[in-house]
Amino acid sequence: MMVAAQIEDINLLYELIQNDLYVLQCIDDVPFFHTLLHVATSFGHIEFMIEMIKLKSTFAKKLNQAGFSPMHLSLQNDRTQTVLRLLRFDEDLVCVKGRDDLTPLYLVVQTRNIDLLIKLLKVCPEAIEHVTVRDETVFHLAVKNDMFEAFQVFVGWLIRSPNEFAQRWEKELLSWTDIDGNTVLHITTI
């Protein structure tokens, strides 16, 4: 089945399903698994990805053994079109927490793709309030990675956002301390 995902052979996928009608359910029953959807999104195989989502939509939020969802892998492999198609399926995928509680929004900060960062923020503004296992906000990560353009986007979004929580987020997130007790200002100074 993994070969079918790697070479984007949808016909082979259905042949294998005919041989074992419960094969996708068996995969879904495993708590952490590198599914066919993980493979397809890693390679940027959009048609195969869409077919897999139709067959087993729960795979879209499933973490693999390394702690990454299909969207995380799409971002790690610079598959922007794949990310955008995943968002059309389910905008909440932006909030899926993976390894170290990193959401896709955190990974976009690391990839330095400002256009994609803005798109993710628009579809799921709540992603801005998530913190990592180290209690780092997206603001912390932007400053640590010298992504001041991303930092400006986040602050600008908070200032202009019609979201009812934006003012609270502005106060809380900009003064939030990470696990080491550092705010964004502390990290900037360091």
Results as ranks from 00 to 15, higher is better:
residue 74 S to E: 01
residue 94 V to C: 01
residue 78 D to Y: 09
residue 172 E to M: 08
residue 55 L to M: 08
residue 103 T to V: 06
residue 59 F to A: 02
residue 56 K to H: 09
residue 114 I to Q: 01
residue 72 H to R: 03
residue 139 F to Q: 06
residue 15 E to D: 14
residue 119 K to S: 08
residue 108 V to S: 02
residue 183 T to G: 06
residue 34 H to R: 11
residue 5 A to V: 03
residue 45 H to N: 11
residue 121 L to K: 10
residue 164 E to G: 03
residue 162 P to Y: 03
residue 59 F to H: 04
residue 62 K to A: 02
residue 65 Q to W: 02
residue 112 R to H: 10
residue 178 D to C: 06
residue 168 R to W: 11
residue 19 N to A: 08
residue 188 T to I: 07
residue 32 F to W: 09
residue 91 E to L: 04
residue 25 Q to E: 11
residue 120 L to S: 08
residue 164 E to Y: 12
residue 40 A to W: 07
residue 151 F to S: 10
residue 76 Q to S: 09
residue 22 Y to K: 14
residue 93 L to R: 06
residue 83 V to G: 00
residue 131 V to H: 05
residue 7 I to A: 01
residue 146 D to R: 11
residue 44 G to N: 04
residue 176 W to Y: 15
residue 168 R to V: 08
residue 75 L to C: 01
residue 51 E to F: 03
residue 183 T to W: 00
residue 40 A to E: 07
residue 164 E to P: 09
residue 175 S to E: 13
residue 127 A to H: 02
residue 181 G to W: 08
residue 44 G to K: 04
residue 117 L to F: 15
residue 52 M to Y: 06
residue 9 D to W: 07
residue 33 F to A: 15
residue 2 M to G: 07
residue 61 K to A: 05
residue 108 V to H: 09
residue 22 Y to G: 05
residue 21 L to H: 10
residue 181 G to S: 14
residue 4 A to T: 00
residue 101 D to L: 03
residue 24 L to Y: 10
residue 32 F to N: 10
residue 97 K to H: 05
residue 103 T to M: 05
residue 149 E to R: 10
residue 173 L to H: 02
residue 118 I to D: 14
residue 30 V to N: 07
residue 180 D to Q: 11
residue 80 T to D: 13
residue 15 E to L: 07
residue 83 V to S: 03
residue 114 I to L: 09
residue 146 D to I: 07
residue 96 V to G: 00
residue 158 L to S: 05
residue 100 D to C: 05
residue 156 G to H: 06
residue 3 V to G: 13
residue 118 I to N: 14
residue 139 F to S: 11
residue 77 N to V: 02
residue 150 A to W: 12
residue 163 N to D: 08
residue 95 C to Y: 01
residue 33 F to S: 08
residue 19 N to Y: 13
residue 151 F to M: 08
residue 144 K to Y: 14
residue 43 F to Y: 12
residue 52 M to G: 05
residue 110 Q to W: 12
residue 122 K to H: 15
residue 155 V to Y: 15
residue 108 V to A: 07
residue 93 L to D: 03
residue 69 S to F: 05
residue 100 D to E: 09
residue 80 T to R: 04
residue 52 M to F: 10
residue 149 E to P: 11
residue 168 R to C: 12
residue 71 M to S: 02
residue 182 N to E: 09
residue 161 S to T: 12
residue 18 Q to F: 05
residue 115 D to Q: 12
residue 11 N to Q: 08
residue 29 D to A: 13
residue 152 Q to N: 15
residue 43 F to E: 04
residue 22 Y to R: 09
residue 64 N to D: 14
residue 153 V to D: 11
residue 156 G to M: 01
residue 80 T to M: 07
residue 176 W to K: 04
residue 29 D to H: 12
residue 182 N to T: 00
residue 21 L to Q: 09
residue 20 D to Y: 07
residue 136 E to S: 13
